[in-house]
């Protein structure tokens, strides 16, 4: 149809499949809805870098705490396995993770193999149309339902929001070499209402340190 309206053919071939199978023969189709009651999130961002460069930073597991919130340590335990340690409100959470699919510059899929929180996910690096850099898409599922998700929201960060924020931090780190923050800046007395608002806005979750980790 598009071609019937134009004399010149399209410059780029029509994509058949995109990040999360959302374009098929030119039609947008949402990924299958999440019906199993588990906490599920899909998010994407545009990064001014190559898929290879984005993949390289994402795959650099020991450096993940530089850009993922509350992540204390990621230890590589084998060619496709790793051990993750998170600290939430002084409480340590640990799990093992296994990479199921590893396509350099394209895609990484993983699942946890023990510990908590149980999670599985996929990150996809796609060249954006028109030379606009890389579209990074995450699909992630956590092995808990609404109640645990709500509890986490009150105590620290909503798990879905955490995935979204981590992708935002990742983008900032790739594009600028740092993660923006206002934590530690000057201010007057916050009082009860100020502290409550700061907590509501998610400002109590420590910003990952970005490249400063490397400097210190």
């Amino acid at each position: 149809m598009a071609n019937t309206l134009k004399e010149a053919p399209r410059l780029e071939p029509l994509p058949r499949i995109a990040s999360a199978a959302i374009i098929e023969d030119g039609r947008y189709l949402p990924p299958p809805a999440d019906g199993d009651g588990q906490t599920w999130v899909r998010t994407s961002t545009l990064i001014q870098s190559t898929p290879e460069e984005c993949y390289r930073l994402w795959r650099d597991l020991p450096n993940v705490p530089r850009w993922q919130e509350l992540m204390k340590e990621v230890r590589v335990t084998g060619p496709n396995t790793s051990h993750w340690v998170m600290e939430v409100n002084g409480k340590t959470m640990e799990w093992d993770s296994e990479i199921l699919k590893d396509e350099p510059g394209k895609r990484i899929a993983w699942r946890s193999t023990g510990g908590s929180p149980q999670n599985a996910g996929e990150v996809i690096f796609d060249t954006a149309a028109g030379g606009r850099g890389t579209i990074v898409t995450i699909l992630q599922e956590f092995g808990f339902g609404r109640v645990s998700s709500a509890t986490a929201t009150v105590l620290s960060r909503n798990p879905k929001q955490a995935v979204i924020e981590n992708l935002r931090h990742f983008k900032a780190l790739v594009e600028t070499g740092e993660i923006p923050t206002i934590q530690g800046q000057s201010h007057g007395p916050r009082g009860v209402s100020g502290k409550l608002k700061a907590s509501l806005y998610g400002e109590h979750v420590p910003t990952p340190r970005g490249d400063l980790q490397r400097a210190s």
């Binding site: 740092e178 993660i179 923006p180 530690g184 000057s186 007395p189 209402s193 400063l212």
Partner: peptide
């Protein structure tokens, strides 16, 4: 240092607050 602080609607105060620090590499 001294700074003008917002302490609520229609309520501003010039207060002593801590000096700012470098927090990020491009600061």
């Amino acid at each position: 240092m001294k700074a003008v602080c917002w302490m609520g609607k229609n309520k501003l105060e010039t207060l002593q607050v801590p000096d700012p620090k470098i927090l990020n590499p491009h600061d």
